[in-house]
Design a protein around this nucleic acid. Sequence first.
DNA 1: ATCTATTCCTGGCTGC
DNA 2: TGCAGCCAGGAATAGA
Length: 283
Amino acid sequence: MPELPEVESVVRALAPALTGRSIKSVEVRNTSTVAGSPGRPAALAGRRIDSVARRGKYIRIHCDRNLGLAIHLRMTGWLGVKTAMELAAEADPYVRVLFHLHPLKEGAASQKEALVFRDIRKFGRVWCGPDPALDGLKALAKLGPDALAIEPAAFAERLRARRGRLKSLLLDQTFLAGLGNIYADEALHEARVHPLQEAQRLSNAKALALHAAGKGVLERACAAGGSSIDDYLHPDGTPGWFQRELKVYGREGEPCRRCGAKVRRVVVGQRGTWFCPKCQRKG
DNA sequence: ATCTATTCCTGGCTGC
DNA sequence: TGCAGCCAGGAATAGA
C-alpha cells in the first residue's frame, strides 16, 4: 500500500523522467479512475510538465498554463513510464489511464512514450484541471501538515488539541498527512506507545518520542524505497525493501523484535493494528 | 467532535 | 480441482 515513503519514491523516480516532457494525449481506459467532468483530461493535451511533487500521499504534477494533475494511488495504484515497444508488447488489463507524451527526439526507441497509471482494484483516482481547482479539492485543501515536515513542538501541540485513539488519529490525513496503516503501527511501536492510547492523555515526552519515531521510520523507509508488501513496486518495476525492517506490521503471533513478546493484532477503526503488548503500554 | 458502518474493487485465501 | 464466500484496506460519506 502506498504511503508517504512509497509515494515519495514514485515522485523521485518520475520527476526526472517527466520534467520537460509534453503531453500529447490522454487515454482514459477506465472512466471511474478519472474524477470530475469527462472532458478534463483532454485539456492537458499539448501541456508541458514542469514539476512532479508530493503532498501527503497525493502526487501533484504541474504543467504550463497552470494546468495539472493530482493522483492518489490508494491501494494498488502504480505509476510508471513505458516505451512504445513496452506498451505494444504487453496487453495489461489493469492499465486505467495513459498519458501519451510527445517524443523528445524522433526515432529514439529507448525513449518513454507514456506515463501509465495502472490499478488493479480501481480505488486510485486521477484529477485533471487548473492548479487552483486541484489545490482546492476538498481532500487536498483539508490535508494536515506533512508527516516529514512537521516540527516536534507543533506535533505535540496538535495532539493535545485532539481526542480519540492515537492509531485513528495518525491515520487521519487532516491531522497529519502521509502516514498509513504500516507506518502508523511502526511509529507507535518504536515510540513504545499503545495504539489505543487516548491522544489527549499522552505525556509531552511521549508525544515528542512519537514524533521522532514517526520521522525516523519514514526517513528510513524513504531511503529503502518504501515497503513492497501487497502490490507496491517502484515506477521501474523493482520492489522497495523496507518490509524487511518492519517490527510489528503484519507480524501477528511472531516475536517482538525488541522484547520477544508475541505481537498482537487488534482492529481499531476498521483497520488491522499490530503492536507489542509488552513494549507498548497505555499511560 | 468523534465514532461506526458502508461503499468502492479484485486477487488471494479458506473451507468444503 | 472447483467454487462460493470472505477478507484487506484509504478515503468519502452518512448516520449515531
